[in-house]
Design a protein around this nucleic acid. Structure first.
Length: 838
RNA sequence: GCCCGGGUGGCGGAAUGGCAGACGCGGCGGAUUCAAAAUCCGCUGUCCGAAAGGACGUGUGGGUUCGACUCCCACCCCGGGCACCA
């Protein structure tokens, strides 16, 4: 089963001074597994840590993107372990999902064995790159033990009103009779059948993430996350403050009708209400029929049908002609501020999912409204005075209110408050906070997912499945239709059940949960994956959570990370997670993607690169090092840019140095260290100081440069005329190996065991830099003339400003360039720089 | 389109308002070798110059500053996300 050579076969190497990763790596991987080096028990006495890389979708052998992700994670696990912590390092598999289902439809093979095979392949890849996990804790989201608690949480959310059923627009393929993922819609057509995709309203399950909008927003401030991710989440939540108020419907004479409810609109700019010259409803608005006049019925129906087939991205785009993107309803409403009658339109860019689904349009202060007004010949009234030099159209900047009666002259903020006070005092509406965030549509019309534990009874209606039924697992004896329809809908054994209320015949929900549900709490289960009585024990969660370092791709910046945060808050409120655990991930690192030829790698593009061939031929350590060296981890990288050969060459250099290759090190010196030896010693301590800092701030590429520079220094030292000082060289090399151990674990473990028999480098503590050794006696001070470097002077690090200035003015090169002139100004930044301005 | 990033030698990158190009790749030269590979040593932004040295140079155009790859404004190009890929 295991193709790796046995340890006995490789320990006796006739040429111990050759670096042979093919022998070394499997042996150490076996040892870490056998000894459980990175297995952490819940009663581990060390300070607990939790380093987690986002669990992968198992797509087969690791691709280079996986390898990059898990290399970063592994480095941190090993680094923090060397700092004396008991670091929880689990792995799992996000094993439900569309690709396995698509493969099943194509091949007829059930997704379960297909997925299990992919998991085995990926697991093997991860082991072979030297990534270490506590494999006893492995979680697979399609595992019935996980499904059970996933469904149990769904029921708890349902009981608490956090899960509910409503309708939503989905992509419907009329040919396949199935719902399509956005990804399956190619230019408006089904990728399977090429039918024109319809957008259809269907019953769906939702999670009430909007209940947590404010906390999701507020907590961001205190998270140690990349600023850009926090910014994207803030914008996604999209909190806005404004007012919601009703526009009375006008009768034929232009007066407000008392017998019909006003049309509520939401605005963030109530201060501009005097400039409202028309109003717009979303084409899906429930009152469209009611508010369309008979003459306009046909045009409105036509428009609604057109919009129904447009994606939201299209609808929100400000590209293209606007004159075809709206239609007049024939009705009018009253602007309550001016008393004027204004026309009521429909427009595609107004969405039913935001605000009230209807807006007041103020072309003077909103460019899209301006464009619309221009296209349809509607009035434009400015209500904010633009500056004199303003030559644009709609003005969104700051300025005094104009054309606004009792608001005239006020600034935006003041005018807003006063307008809202008036709206409230007139009983038209009130101040309102709105969020762009929508509830989470969590049901999928698919087979390969976690079934939603709900039962429908003709008599009792919708009923939660009894807890004793859990887990409800998708059946194995199913037939996949080429159309992509979920087989659950036709599987009699799955579909038919008895009603938990009346005991009569009933049917099961055939929708499954979004795979983001699976990934919204797996990190909690890692703390206590063996628990059969509850999803996890609170004490176990308290020991390890929140995750100290979460690592994953930037593509998850919004959805997964938002859903996982919501789940943690909800579970905390429901009492299943500790009540003070509000945020799951204390620190987040989002790595860039690995691209091939400049574009995102994906199976559909066929441009994935398998790193296995490289590992086979040259070893995992060189690959890991190349990944670390290539780029800052946060940035995207092209596979073509990895410098695998250079890294392999470097590891060979380290090997020759540490294995004391006699062609490199021709004997060492004993006795007292010389000045030069002491400088090597100091450089060693500077390296400790440097690498620790670089690991902490994810500067792995410069850490690798540090290893290389230091190795170059030691090569010169080893080949110097008077030869290296034995103890100094030994200490320098040992330190280098320790610092490199988290990055390239196999070669460093092997070399360390060669140099220190019986010792395991990964069980050593991280070296500490001696502060005394970090002080320097002189530093290079730059002397500039008008900001251009003209000289460099060696000075004491604690030189005073005046001495620095004097030294600069005394420089021969400065004296000749100044040619007797006096500097007008002298900028001194002792001891680094003096700038003379003439 | 909207939200978020990024643009530095032949290439990947370094430099968190203070020496632009660390380190690596590639290239060139030397040592070693019968020869080659491997290895070791050195040089390598562009232009002018024999050299010393000088000028130019971080996507484009402006600005702030004694000083800008770094901060601000506008634009161009590339990448991620946009709620059913994960």
């Amino acid at each position: 089963m295991d193709e790796h050579p046995s340890p006995e076969a490789t320990t006796t190497d006739s040429e111990p001074s050759r670096y042979r990763p093919g022998n070394i790596e499997p042996r150490w991987q076996q040892r870490w597994a056998d000894e459980g080096t990175y297995e952490i028990d819940n009663d581990d006495p060390r300070e607990a840590g939790f380093v987690l890389s986002m669990y992968p979708y198992p797509s087969g052998p690791a691709h280079i993107g996986h390898v990059r992700n898990y290399t970063f994670g592994d480095l941190l696990v090993r680094y923090h372990t060397m700092q004396g912590k008991g670091v929880l390092s689990p792995i799992g598999f996000d094993s439900f999902g569309l690709p396995a289902e698509n493969a099943a439809i194509k091949s007829g093979v059930h997704p379960r064995p297909f997925t299990e095979e992919r998991i085995a392949e990926l697991s093997s890849s991860l082991r072979r790159i030297g990534a270490v996990y506590d494999l006893r804790r492995t979680i697979k989201s399609h595992d019935p033990a996980y499904i059970r608690w996933n469904q149990w949480f769904f029921l708890k959310f349902y009981e608490a009103g956090l899960a509910y059923r409503s309708t939503a627009i989905v992509n419907w393929c009329p040919g396949c009779h199935t719902v399509l993922a956005n990804e399956q819609v190619i230019e408006g057509r089904c990728e399977r059948s090429d039918d024109l995709v319809e957008r259809r309203d269907m019953a769906q399950w939702f999670f009430k993430i909007t209940d947590y909008a404010q906390e999701l927003l507020d907590n961001l401030d205190d998270l140690d996350w990349p600023q850009r991710v926090k910014l994207m989440q803030r914008n996604w939540i999209g909190r806005s403050e404004g007012a919601e108020f009703g526009l009375p419907i006008a009768d034929d004479t232009g007066n407000a009708r008392a017998d019909v409810d006003p049309l509520p609109v939401y605005t963030t700019r109530p201060d501009t209400s005097f400039g409202m010259t028309f109003a717009v409803m979303s084409p899906e608005h429930p009152r469209v029929q009611e508010l369309t006049t008979s003459e306009q019925l046909e045009a409105v129906a036509k428009f609604q049908a057109e919009v129904a087939n447009r994606s939201e991205i299209d609808r929100l785009s400000t590209d293209g002609a606007i004159d075809k993107r709206g239609v007049f309803t024939g009705s009018s409403v009253v602007n309550p501020f001016t008393g004027n009658t204004i026309p009521l339109y429909l427009a595609d860019y107004v969405l039913m999912t935001y605000g009230t689904g209807a807006i007041m349009a103020v072309p003077g202060q909103d460019q899209r409204d301006w464009d619309f007004a221009s296209a349809y010949g509607l009035d434009i009234v400015r209500t904010v005075q633009p500056p004199d030099d303003f030559d644009g159209e709609a003005f969104v900047g700051e300025g005094p209110a104009i054309n606004s009666q009792w608001l005239d002259g006020l600034g935006i903020d003041e005018a807003k408050s006063k307008a809202i006070e008036w709206i409230e005092s007139e009983g038209l509406g009130s101040r309102k906070v709105n969020f762009r965030l929508r509830d989470w549509l969590a049901s999928r019309q698919r087979f390969w997912g976690c079934p939603i534990p709900i039962i429908y009874c003709d008599d009792c209606g919708m009923r939660p499945a009894p807890e004793s039924d859990l887990p409800i697992v998708a059946p194995d004896d199913v037939e996949f239709r080429p159309t992509g329809e979920s087989p659950l809908r036709y599987h009699e054994g799955f579909l038919h059940t008895t009603c938990p209320g009346c005991g009569g015949p009933a049917t099961r929900e055939t929708d499954t949960l979004d795979t983001f549900v699976d990934s919204s709490w797996y990190f909690l289960r890692f703390a206590d994956p063996w628990n059969e009585d509850e999803p996890f024990d609170q004490e176990a969660v308290k020991k390890f959570l929140p995750v100290d370092q979460y690592i994953g791709g930037i593509e998850h910046a919004i959805l997964h990370l938002m859903y996982a945060r919501f789940y943690t808050m909800a579970l905390s409120d429901l009492g299943y997670a500790p009540n003070d655990l509000r945020e799951p991930f204390k620190r987040l690192f989002t790595q860039g993607m690995v691209r091939m030829g400049g574009s995102k790698m994906s199976k559909s593009k066929g441009n994935t690169e398998s790193p296995e061939a490289w590992v086979d031929a040259h070893g995992a350590d060189a690959l890991r090092l190349a990944i670390l060296q290539a780029k800052p981890p946060a940035e995207d990288v092209d596979w073509e840019d990895f410098q695998l050969e250079g890294c392999e060459r470097f590891l060979n250099r380290v090997w020759r140095l540490a294995a004391a290759d006699p062609t490199l090190i021709d004997g060492v010196r004993d006795g007292e260290p010389t000045e030069n030896d002491r400088e090597i010693g100091a450089a060693t301590h500077r390296l400790i100081d440097r690498i620790g800092g670089e690991y902490e701030r994810w500067a792995y590429n410069t850490a690798v440069a540090g290893f290389m520079e230091f190795t170059n220094t030691l090569y010169k030292y080893a080949q110097s005329d008077d030869g290296p000082h034995g103890p100094t060289l030994a200490s320098a090399v040992d330190t280098l190996l320790q610092l490199m151990a988290p990055a390239v674990p196999h070669i460093t473990a092997e070399l360390w065991s060669l140099r220190h028999e019986g010792e395991h480098i990964h069980e050593l503590l991280w070296p500490e830099a001696d502060p005394e050794q970090l002080t320097v006696s002189s530093i290079t001070m730059v002397v500039q003339l008008n900001g251009k470097v003209r000289d460099r002077i060696e000075v004491s690090p604690d030189i005073s400003d005046s001495d620095a200035e004097a030294a600069a003015l005394a420089s021969a090169r400065i004296v000749s360039q100044l040619d007797g002139a006096k500097p007008k100004k002298v900028i001194v930044r002792a001891p680094k720089l003096v700038n003379l301005v003439v």
